[in-house]
């Protein structure tokens, strides 16, 4: 009996081992553990075993059954897993086939640049506003200390609608409006379109600028410079170099032009920066006290700085756009490159 059991165990384990599909494995299970199975038969024959051996044989029989069951379930799991692997192999797809669903579009490069810049300004405490594009001659020139005989005030350079209303030639009227909208101290930045009577291969009659203005007590050129430096570092990285030149704007005094490492060539010198390694970053300066006074702000108490560049050129440099006219042509082949 004992010998028989050991033989069953040996054969059973061996047969289980040999089986290679789930169906055959089930057959083996029936052969051994089924109602008419070999082991079942043996256990039924237990009553013929002498009482003194019954205990030992019984325990052996149970152990044999357990071992076979364990082996069966292990094998079952293995075979099932193999089958899954085989099925997955059959379901394999060509992962290089195109994706489905709507493909994301893209924002215009000008918007992207603007967003980046404006978010930076917001972090630095600026409020982003927009002011009208159709402006009064007063806000566009007079209130900004642009003298009456300045060429910009001729019809030839600006787009006028009436004698006193024109398409703004710069975003600087935002300074004037902000001075009336907010009580100092404040910081504002105003992005937007500006218009000039100019249309050739390198100029658009419409282009984009922004204007920033900080009015507070004790604001100096040094504060302006530390802020500009911070902005340049955030935009172009900590290795950016700066260069400051005196400049002239009617609404700031002193006025400066700030150049930063040319982003086209990384400062090595290229056709865009005329070999200097620098390109124009900001123009601005300390707000001319006359402008504060005209807006009803006490220039003895408050001072400020204003700055604002044209952004079209920066956008061209950052995105290596070959021609300024691309910005308004809206060719899908161009826009797709902004994804």
């Amino acid at each position: 009996m004992k010998q028989k059991l050991e033989e069953i165990l040996k054969n059973g384990l061996c047969e289980i081992e040999k089986v290679s599909d789930l169906k055959s494995l089930d057959e083996v299970r029936v052969t051994y553990l089924g109602k008419a199975g070999v082991l079942t038969q043996i256990l039924r024959g237990m009553r013929d075993v002498p009482a003194e051996e019954r205990r030992e044989i019984g325990s052996l029989a149970n152990s044999v059954r357990e071992q076979i069951e364990k082996k069966l379930s292990e094998k079952w799991a293995n075979l099932e897993n193999e089958k899954l692997l085989a099925d997955m192999e059959k379901e394999k797809v060509d992962i290089t086939e195109p994706s489905k669903g709507v493909k994301r579009g893209a924002l215009h490069p000008l918007t992207r640049f603007n967003n980046k810049f404006m978010e930076m300004c917001v972090e630095m405490g600026f409020t982003v506003i927009q002011t009208p594009e159709i402006e009064t001659d007063y806000n566009n020139f007079e209130a900004l200390n642009v003298p009456k005989n300045h060429p910009a005030r001729d019809m030839q350079d600006s787009l006028y609608i009436t004698e006193n209303i024109l398409l703004r030639t710069h975003t600087s009227p935002a300074q004037v409006r902000a001075m009336h909208m907010f009580k100092p101290p404040f910081k504002i930045v105003c992005p937007g379109r500006v218009y000039r009577n100019d249309d050739d291969s390198s100029h658009s009659p419409i282009f984009n600028q922004f204007e920033a203005l900080v009015i507070d007590e004790n604001v100096s050129l040094k504060d302006f410079m530390t802020m500009v430096k911070e902005m340049a570092v955030r935009l172009y990285g900590k290795d950016v170099k700066m260069r400051v030149r005196p400049a002239y704007f009617p609404f700031t005094e002193p006025s400066i032009e700030i150049d930063a490492t040319c982003q086209m060539c990384g400062g090595k010198g290229c056709s865009l920066c005329k070999g200097t390694g620098f390109s124009e970053f900001f123009g601005g300066g300390i707000v001319n006290p006359r402008i504060l006074e005209m807006a009803g702000i006490d220039s003895n108490k408050y001072s400020g700085f204003a700055f604002g560049p044209g952004i079209d050129r920066s956008v061209m440099v950052t995105n290596k756009i070959p021609n300024i006219k691309y910005l308004f042509r809206n060719d899908l082949r161009f826009l797709k490159q902004m994804r």
């Binding site: 630095m124 982003v128 101290p185 910081k187 504060d223 802020m227």
Partner: peptide, 11 residues
């Protein structure tokens, strides 16, 4: 940056 300026909320 803005060493001598008042703090303003951006937005």
């Amino acid at each position: 940056v803005f060493e001598n300026c008042s703090t303003t909320m951006g937005g």
